[in-house]
Write a protein that binds this DNA or RNA. Sequence first.
DNA 1: TCTGGGGTCCTAGGACCC
DNA 2: TCTGGGGTCCTAGGACCC
Length: 413
Amino acid sequence: MKTFFHVDMDAFFVSVEELYDPSLKGKPVVVGGRPDQRGVVSAASYAARRYGVHSAMPLRTAYKLCPHAIFVDGHSDRYRQSSAKVVEVLRAFSPQVSMASIDEAYIDITGSERLHGPPLEAAHKLHERIRAATGLNNSIGAGTSRLLAKICSDQAKPNGVLWIAPGMEARFLAPLDVRKIPGVGKVTEKSLHALGIRKIGDLASLDTALLEQRFGKWGLALAGKAQGLDAGGWFDGEVGGDEEPKSVSHETTFDKDTADVVVLEATLAKLSEMVATRLRDYRLWSRTVQLKLRYSDFSTYTRARTLDHATQIDIDLIECSRRLFQENWNGRPVRLLGVQASGLQGDEGQVSLLEEEKNQRWKSALSAVDRIRDRFGASSVSLASSMKGSFRERAHDALPDIPGAKDHPKRRK
DNA sequence: TCTGGGGTCCTAGGACCC
DNA sequence: TCTGGGGTCCTAGGACCC
């Protein structure tokens, strides 16, 4: 029998802002930006929530609901700092820690009873340590699965601790709305309601075969979740296992939609650079580059290309995303642009820096060929190839071996 | 209600290979 | 050439989470 905790920080962004400006405490606070900006609420204080404001709501809507709320910009550096403090406390508590996002974590405390006491006592101990180290309220759920721990922490809010003892899972879950199951959103909820399923108990008493027939693989997972099991999806694997990112992306929504090619391509270049920088920070290389385009009517398109070599170099991402853009933009005003790198791999198996430099050299040699062709016409180069074989191949074979590339057209002089 | 930005996982079809 | 089936890779889109 295993024991998991789910630790969730309460109104995290708002609470961190309150550390920096205690006068915000108790007031309706909205983190996410100015109310006249394009954007949504990142976090709302409990006082603001009483007016119906919640995260993911457009800022303009939040303003209509609660005009006297204090709107503040987010400070991701501050949140990362507080998050790092939380991680420190968690790692000191148990070696098996997985951050699920900046403000929540799973920890496996199986077998730590001698050290920390029984689950409820251990949870209170951890709750207090986090509070002491960060000055922030948090909630902890504890149970025999990660799913259960997660649902518990939600029920424990604000600033509470809840443990469901082994054997009590079904009784705890039965009266809760299906929407409380992580992974059940608007769409799944609607389909379940259409079947007359509203509570987790309804789901649990349903025939598994029917769920599978109706929802496929997801139906099977749902059946498991209704029993409080870590079925399918995110909960595979160990807590504290593989934490490598699977994709890295940046996107931006313009203040005002634009069809200005110069602005669009400059933005794309900037986003590509930001992605490349993050790849290098992570020491990761990407093979697939994806462009994201959103128009004024919110229609959204993604277009991807897989390269023959993995890269973390700005220019590769810039060129690839620009080509995708040129091939797919319909000329209408654009609301959002995004660049994503996926197909990530580590350093191992990468061409060495030396190889990379050779690569660059003969790429430049090729562009030299292009320049000659531009100036003297295609025949100048094909003439050379008919006499001496392909200049391109010769450039490829010969140039990289010349020390310092003294004959390199670009470096000559 | 005029809808951010950063992610994960899943599905489904087509290409290609054996 | 009337044609099977499985595996893997790639692409696009969608649900969902914080």
